[in-house]
Design a protein around this nucleic acid. Structure first.
Length: 270
DNA sequence: ATGGCCTGTTACACAGGA
């Protein structure tokens, strides 16, 4: 690896909706995107013992996994080994504060070249006012504590993943008011905006103000064919990294494949 | 005319996603 390569990093985030079902999509994508240093996966949907490690290790990726049965699950795939890998909120927060919010496996992070890469699978929330919606809000409140604590020790933080929140109307295919929809309710948006006040900025919006960019499309209603998507997968950067950022883009190609994930990769380079 | 899914489970419908 050249020094030049060390100076530039690419980090990708992809909700694969089952790593086993999507295995060839992910390995093909890694091989087609050799400049990606770290791939952050969400919704792996598999216990650690059954995670298809060998497929990635065969391509010379280190695998760091934090999974559970059937639901959720996050993983980091990295060409160079990562340092100080942490799983769950309780890695740095008091158990009393975390409560049962680590039962669902949604948080994993590691350090590469002095940058902490935090991979998140934010709860979906189901529908406004539901029990799952309350869980989403509690989870996001704890995430804020987690971010503040993390920022006590590093100025280089890349928080990425499936946030299950579209922060602006232009991040949704329609201009229709979405106040009553999960992922775009005012409370969700305000909560995410408030989270970012810890000192994080949307890498994607450094490079374009355009609407019409989607990272997720519903499987139903031929949404992808009709370009009816949402931008809900994000890379948030601390000021030092944000200043360094060279590109941030969404790779729509995997969404076109047979039996695709409903999400598609988002990549940032800095 | 226009659309009605996908995944994992101990399944043969359901929960959960978004």
């Amino acid at each position: 690896m050249s020094l030049l390569k060390l100076n530039r990093m690419q980090v990708a985030s992809w909700n694969v909706n089952s790593v086993r079902t999507r295995l060839t999509h992910v390995t093909d994508w890694l091989q087609a995107n050799p400049d990606v240093d770290v791939l952050c996966l969400q919704e792996t949907k598999v216990v650690d013992a059954d995670f298809p490690r060998a497929a990635f290790e065969g391509l010379d990726y280190h695998t760091y996994i934090y999974g559970q049965k059937a639901y959720n699950g996050v993983a980091l795939l990295s060409k160079p080994p990562l340092e100080d890998v942490r799983m769950g909120f309780s890695a740095i927060l008091e158990e009393e504060a975390v409560g049962d919010l680590d039962e669902q496996k949604r948080v994993i992070s590691g350090v590469l070249n002095g940058v902490r890469i935090l991979n998140l699978y934010v709860p979906n929330g189901s529908s406004i006012g539901s029990e799952k919606y309350d869980y989403k809000m509690s989870w996001l409140a704890l995430l804020k504590q987690y971010l503040m604590k993390t920022l006590e020790e590093t100025t280089k933080l890349n928080v990425c993943g499936d946030f299950n929140i579209a922060i602006e109307n232009k991040d949704i295919y329609t201009d229709e008011k979405r106040d009553k929809h999960i992922m775009s309710s005012p409370l969700e948006r305000e909560t995410l905006q408030d989270l970012l006040t810890v000192g994080l900025s949307d890498a994607f919006r450094k490079f374009t103000d355009e609407g019409g960019h989607l990272s997720w499309c519903d499987y139903r209603a031929a949404s992808f064919r009709r370009n009816m998507g949402w931008r809900i997968d994000h890379h948030y950067l601390t000021p030092e990294l944000y200043k360094q950022a060279k590109r941030c883009w969404i790779d729509i190609e995997p969404r076109k494949l047979e039996k695709p994930s409903d999400h598609t990769p988002v990549i940032v380079e800095y």
